[in-house]
Design a protein around this nucleic acid. Structure first.
Length: 418
DNA sequence: CACCGTCAAGTCGCA
DNA sequence: TGCGACTTGACGGTG
């Protein structure tokens, strides 16, 4: 059983992906971007290994214009050794990765050019995974596509076009229920007929259900039947609704209690769970730490070192609660720990707390900063007290000093990214 | 340096 | 018929 996250690692230096607009997509520029993005991928893979994260989605933007004529670089040749090195790390760690072309990759379109671009997109995704020399258990996830006023014909077109796909794509391709057009029943029909594994997405199912009779567990068990030995263990997508946004929007973080309720209902030892959530790796680590059988408080202490100034900024009370919680060194109060953090993050940030947090962070530098840095910082904190500057401004100033003085404890802090 | 429009894609709902 | 929303972070130009 693995829990993972998609594409981006929040608060991880050197992991950002770069892109450019078509106008600027010269060969030189593209080469530079690919090199950068592969570096960033390796940074994320290393991070995953260090944090025991064994499930990860590689961004489809890893190679800018990877499936377009705009990019003529034979990147799989030019960066062959880089791909092999990263792929080895993935394999040796027992990590499983995937790719997920977005809503604009539509295999069942009635427009020939749209379909051929979709095929190129799938070929590209497979080529990335092939270049990493990973097995067919490392999947490409696709939605069925549009309806075009006739679902039966649209499904037929999907199946016909699927048959035309390259074998390297077919052995990796899995299909997922979406939030508008194809519910889990529709996708299962296709999956069973075409022998394609089905990924169950709980939020899509909540938004676009087949009926209100069958439970999530029922559908997960139905989907399980579509996964064959060569496909690896069943994969599902899990996310929670952002209550302030439109129906189907992913939440900022995974509420741990709600997750555990779901987790405890399913056959979690035989399922890989991909989280779709704004805070990405943060929620993945949270869910892993709350379900692990290895219960070491050191893990929570490490988490606390990253969260603490952010929590101090939100709530002094919660900050003190966590400190009390982590005193007993033979305990492992992971769920309580994350409940206090979730609670703090929901609170409105007031001036007093944001000043307090900034002063704590400034404390790392007050003996090493130059006179001018000291002047700027203290002035900014005074302005913050009067709400004349934003918390982002002060965080930018403090972040620059963190980088300059390589303040290790702060470099990983979520204070700067939340 | 902060801010914000733009990009890039295909479908669908609505005027 | 055509346009805006959906999605996403970063780009890229402006002030």
């Amino acid at each position: 059983m693995s829990i993972g996250y998609a594409c981006i690692a929040v608060g991880l230096i050197g992991s950002n992906q770069k892109s450019c607009i078509t106008k600027n997509a010269s060969e030189e520029k593209l080469y530079e971007l690919i090199e950068h993005n592969l570096n960033a991928l390796e940074v994320m893979i290393d991070y995953n290994i260090q944090n025991n994260i064994k499930l990860f989605r590689i961004s489809s933007d890893i190679i800018p214009f990877g499936s377009s004529a705009v990019n003529n670089i034979k990147w799989w040749e030019k960066f062959e050794s880089t791909f092999q090195r990263i792929g080895s790390k993935i394999k040796n760690a027992g990590m499983r990765v995937s790719m997920h072309p977005g809503q604009y990759t539509v295999l069942n379109s009635p427009h020939e050019d749209v379909v051929s671009r979709a095929i190129l997109d799938l070929d590209y995704s497979a080529r990335v995974l092939d270049s990493l020399e990973l097995s067919a258990k490392n999947k490409i996830i696709l939605h069925i596509g549009g309806i075009y006023q006739n679902k039966i014909e649209a499904v037929q077109r999907f199946c016909e076009n699927y048959k035309c796909l390259d074998e390297s794509v077919k052995q990796r391709l899995v299909i997922e229920n979406d939030d508008k057009s194809y519910n889990v029943f529709d996708v299962l029909e296709i999956g069973k007929n075409m022998m394609i594994p089905v990924v169950f997405d709980n939020l899509h199912n909540a938004v676009n259900p087949y009926d209100n009779v069958h439970s999530e567990v029922y559908w997960i068990n139905e989907c399980k039947k579509t996964w064959k030995k060569n496909d690896g263990i069943q994969k599902i997508h899990y996310s929670q609704q952002d209550l302030n946004k439109r129906v189907g929007s992913h939440s900022a973080t995974i509420k741990i209690n709600e997750f555990l309720e779901f987790y405890n209902q399913i056959d979690h030892d035989n399922i890989d769970i991909m989280l779709e959530v704004k805070d990405k790796n943060l929620s993945a680590v949270k869910c892993i730490n709350c379900t692990t059988t290895v219960k070491k408080i050191k893990v929570l202490e490490k988490e606390w070192s990253k969260y603490k100034y952010k929590i101090l900024e939100c709530s002094q009370e919660n900050y003190l609660m966590v400190r009390r919680l982590l005193i007993k060194k033979d305990d492992y109060p992971a769920i309580e720990f994350y409940n206090i953090i979730e609670d703090a993050l929901l609170k409105e940030i007031n001036t007093e707390n944001s000043v307090n947090a900034a002063q704590h962070v400034w404390g790392y530098f007050k003996n090493i900063a130059t006179e001018s840095e000291k002047k700027v910082c203290l002035k900014s904190i005074e302005l913050l007290k009067k709400r004349e500057i934003s918390t982002n401004s002060i965080k930018n100033i403090l972040w620059k000093m963190t980088v300059k003085y390589e303040e290790k404890y702060l470099l990983d802090s979520y204070y700067f990214v939340m």
